[in-house]
Design a binder for these strands. Sequence first.
RNA 1: UCGGGGAUCGUCUAAUGGCAGGACGCAAGACUCUGACUCUUGCUAUCUAGGUUCGAAUCCUAGUCCCCGAACCA
Length: 762
Amino acid sequence: MAVERNDFIRDIIDDDLAAGRHTTVATRFPPEPNGYLHIGHAKAICVDFGVARDYQGTCNLRYDDTNPVKEDVEYVKSIEADVRWLGFEPSAVLFSADYFPKMYELAERLVTEGKAYVCDLTDEQIKEYRGTLSEPGRPSPFRDRSVEENLDLLRRMQAGEFPDGARVLRAKIDMASANMKMRDPLLYRIRHAHHHRSGDRWKIYPMYDYAHPLEDGIEGITHSICTLEFENNRELYDWVLDNTGPWATRPHQYEMARLVLDYTVMSKRKLLTLVQQKLVNGWDDPRMPTIAAMRRRGYSAAAIRAFCDMIGIAKANSSVDIGKLEYCIRDDLNHTAPRVLGVLRPIEVELVGWTGETEMLEAPLFPPDVGKPGSRQVPFSGRVLIDRDDWRDDPPKDYQRLAPGRTVRLRYGYCISGAEVVERDPAGNVTRLRAKVDLDTTGGKNPADGRKVSGVIHWVDAASSLPVEVRLYDRLFKVPSPEEGGGDFLEHLDPSSLEIVTGARVEASLATAEIGSRWQLERVGYFIVDQDTKPGAIVMNRIITLRDQRTVATTAKTPAAPETERKINAKAQTRPKGKSPAEYRAEARARDPELATAHTRLSALPGITADHADLLAGDRDTAALFVAVAETVAPELAAKWIINELPRALGDTPIGTVAADQLAQLLRAVADGSLNPSAAKGVLAELVRTGKPFSELRAAQTAPALDLVPAIDAVIAANPEKAAQYKAGKTGLLGFFVGQVMKSAPGADAAAVNRAVRDRLG
RNA sequence: UCGGGGAUCGUCUAAUGGCAGGACGCAAGACUCUGACUCUUGCUAUCUAGGUUCGAAUCCUAGUCCCCGAACCA
């Protein structure tokens, strides 16, 4: 059931399915109901639900509501609404709180088994005992309480006998672990707080690291996908599951990079600041990155899903160009938004030569290439409004709109020409024009006298058009990374990210436009009818501008953050460099005299460099393997294979499992030329994987084709264009041909194939 | 006693020892009753240095840079 899309998560699932570790896929999207969902969550939703959809599995919406003091039903509602709006149907809507009884039962079991204890240290003391990144922690003085006492205290914690913070339940793991998360992590804390779902029943609440794996286990989640910052938590996730099972399906956690987007901020705290300081108009202000805001802005769910597909899934931290989002929005709207005419900042144009009648012009709702039917009637009555941008007293050379002496077409209507200024406002902006209408120019007909039409401009009928308030939204921040540079991110707010235009006019057909309907105002941009619209008072939000080559060419792009000065973080000082592998090997030898002896002995072997010796004598298993193999094989050959080739064959299997005599046999065959190196690599992989004896594996090798020429010619014949490219100089294709031949003749001597292919291709 | 991750066109991402590919972007051109859309063509990348190999983005070694981890948050 492998899927075409390629990302590391789906690779893992394909492997799991192929290996029979799972027969179905179960995922979950586990938000904490403590805020509104944003575009970052949208990515997670698309991954979690998307994976389930691709493999016909399930995906639960599960509220990770283990901290009653931060959570609220308001968020619960908005989250589910957002998920559904995005187009995903949860297989189930669940609450961690509903598992509290089971979690508590398992906690008592951990206590009973001596794997958890009640600790009376204060939070400061706990922190102190935990040690630091580079120093081990110390055991809590309460670590060795008896099972009976622990059980009694735990029960009394839940009975409400102790105040908040008095005691915690901790896992008894390892205070000296290099992973801070494993230094006796907290499992439960006391919270006398009302929970939005479980009410006042519980006096103790589980911590994320305890609750989350159990939730996954209880629900039978197969692939628990989260973000990179939880990598360190995985060891604890596994510990909890392994010490509470058995689980019918044992979940595994996988981490992917979270979404970072240009020109915005995503952290809950910063978003809250924007709302609280009224720098935006609430959580659904169309400039916000929340899903509610994007919905109000006019982004469609399909566009957001397309964006999430476009950016992919990987483990590398990255920052996505907001232009990609904008592309997806435009691409979606181009196919879905009907075209209408509207003018943002009107100039009135009196048309000389018009009959005075009102004529209805037919205008299609979509351009031909979109291929959707429909049209509407647009009234035309001799007085029109055009956009201020479409008139220039003194136009630049490439100007394609109205100016003195120019002829332009009114979209879907007549050509006009001979425009002259009638009136200006005090600032000098033109407010009224008079122009001549060229009759008999509808239907795309050009003026009979052969005048050139410079362009097509949009317009509305002065008499019948509707007033509309237009809200022009743009990126909230002026810089791509408002959080960088150490300063206050608010300094980078763009004050012109919202511009309200009050005098705009749209064509009469929009009188009945519904709230939430999306339109393209031709040549202006895409707009949505906002919920603030009242009868007779239309409000439209600009979703996004049209792509505009003209401005791109003239407006210099915002320069990238000038000085990417290294972040001076205080943490850096407390982070001494870790030891290198070389140091570890040296230390191992210092500790282990036997290893040290091996090192000096094998350093003296012929063909063994100091680097080889260091690598081979870094641990006992490797050293032992090498020594054993080198008894019957040239040391240099043994060293190269053990150092360079064995690791790949090994993967995660420990080197100690490799049978030295079998490896030696293999290398002897390589040395005497009876087994070519490329075939030997395949045999080595099998040797490690299956543990079968070399002799058997070797016999199973298909005999290499004696005559390679036919095989090579067949490949060349099958790929004539590649052969031509190769002859034309694309020598990189040599590898392609060799690869193809090797596929048809496994076990062949690749070096010989390589030479032969080169000969045949001339 | 530090540990865990990561680095491929400007950006995002693919290639699981065998053609460095796609998308966004950018540039030029075509088309056009939207300076839109569409189409064509082009642009640009394997962090560095060694090694193994017929062949390395991929395996080995050394180095560089970036991210995460010491809440009774998730």
